[in-house]
Design a protein around this nucleic acid. Structure first.
Lengths: 243, 243
DNA sequence: ATTACCGAATGATATTTATCATATTGGATT
DNA sequence: AATCCAATATGATAAATATCATTCGGTAAT
């Protein structure tokens, strides 16, 4: 065979990988849109893809930050253990988000944990290399900054939203979050437990369960274990806004 | 006069300013440490200093983002008006913080307001110029990113802290925040009203007042209007950690 | 001087949420 | 099949917080 395609190069460099689908992956992510084909090839040579099963820990609080990590497939939660040992969920990340959220440029180690809440695939690139790219390619640095800003912006604003709502409003909020932002449909399987919902919205597990049951009795949602169907979207949105 | 110092140049370019003390100002800020003297002079020519009195609005939610703004002197609050018209305070910024927090790179307009809670001075530089600098100077971009990350990181983690505490712990938290991070002393004048404390910690004004009174009765703090003196630091820290 | 208003303060009461107790279910393990 | 354990579920009660009412003092406006 005479023609040596980029895929073949990748396979040579990353023998444990059967393919490097960065082209698709990165194209879909606005973040990387400006990277030239050459740079793309580079990334394919140096990146590592990692697969995780639902429940697997991707990053543990306190881990040294070695890689720049972004989510190619799946869904993850960012969480932090508080002094009294309780977990608090900071946010969720979906594909093309950076798992490496804020701390990567301001800290040596992660201040939060990242856990797969659905089967997930990450792309890992050594942080040194990303920093190097940023220093040699100001457009890249700008785009990176923009994306990091967007992500954190969203976390801060979302937290504010939740803060001003009561129990029912918070439950409505997270149901609509999964429905609108993650799954894009009215029926979906909750990727997290009632306890994790509680850890995210800052209420107790019992009250989360009770409220979901209320919504069911009020015929706003249907519940089959983790499967949720939003029946009365309008009312759920009203509850989100006005309790 | 033969010698034409940089200060004279600045005065010529910015006739409304009597001096351009960027050298000091910027040196103190880690962010700008890498900028060469030449770049410094440039900034002096293009920046604008603005003075605000306590209570003045620096940025209104929805304003177009035109400038990169950082705080040279004073103290400001970042806040957002929620759908039902209530203000929520996101965070406070002290000198050498960026007032232009997250949104500057990810949005066309501010998603929050910025208000002086002490007499303040800002340095404003057209955003285009800063973006240009970032594109031509990758180190600058990296430092900028690092600083933005640090700031937002802090907001997110601080919010988590507050979220897991009860009323008394939240009050202890904010008192110690002002004492430790802003003023560096055990007695200080609260820069904000009881209502604003409530808007920050997410409780009602009445409960803020009641709790402060409790702390006074328990001889943990002394209160003279807005003047606060922390008398029993140890106990206040215990309350912050364990309620 | 008078009025009006806002921040601070306090108490009584109502509402919201947490805690505790107890079942039930379903999955994993032996 | 038996056992264990975690998640889900529900009710009763306790605790935390909000709401409402009222007062006091300062200060800005008329």
């Amino acid at each position: 065979m005479v023609f040596l395609g980029s895929k073949m190069i990748e396979q040579a460099m990353n023998p444990d990988k059967t393919n490097c689908s960065c082209e698709n992956c990165l194209l879909k992510s606005l973040f990387f849109t400006h990277i030239s084909i050459d740079a793309l090839t580079d990334i394919c040579e140096i990146k590592q893809e990692r697969e995780y099963n639902k429940g697997d820990i991707i990053i543990s609080e306190g881990d040294k930050i070695k890689d720049f990590i972004y989510l190619k497939e799946g869904l993850v939660k960012l969480s932090k253990k508080s002094a009294d040992g309780k977990d608090q969920i900071i946010s969720f990340s979906k594909p093309f988000d950076f798992v490496s959220l804020l701390s990567i440029f301001s800290s040596e180690e992660y201040k939060y944990s990242v856990t797969a809440i659905e089967d997930s695939v990450t792309c890992n690139i050594a942080l040194d290399i990303v920093k190097n790219m940023a220093q040699n390619n100001a457009m890249f640095a700008m785009n990176l900054m923009t994306r990091v800003s967007e992500a954190t912006d969203h976390i801060v604003l979302d937290n504010l939203e939740i803060k001003r709502k009561h129990l029912r409003g918070r439950i409505a909020h997270i149901l609509l979050y999964f429905s609108d932002h993650i799954y894009g449909r009215n029926e979906f399987e909750l990727p997290i437990s009632r306890r994790e919902i509680a850890e995210y919205i800052g209420m107790t597990t019992e009250n989360v369960i009770r409220t979901l049951s209320e919504f069911r009795k009020d015929k706003i949602i249907k519940i089959y274990g983790k499967d949720i169907e939003i029946v009365d979207l309008k009312r759920l949105k009203t509850i989100r806004e006005h309790g």
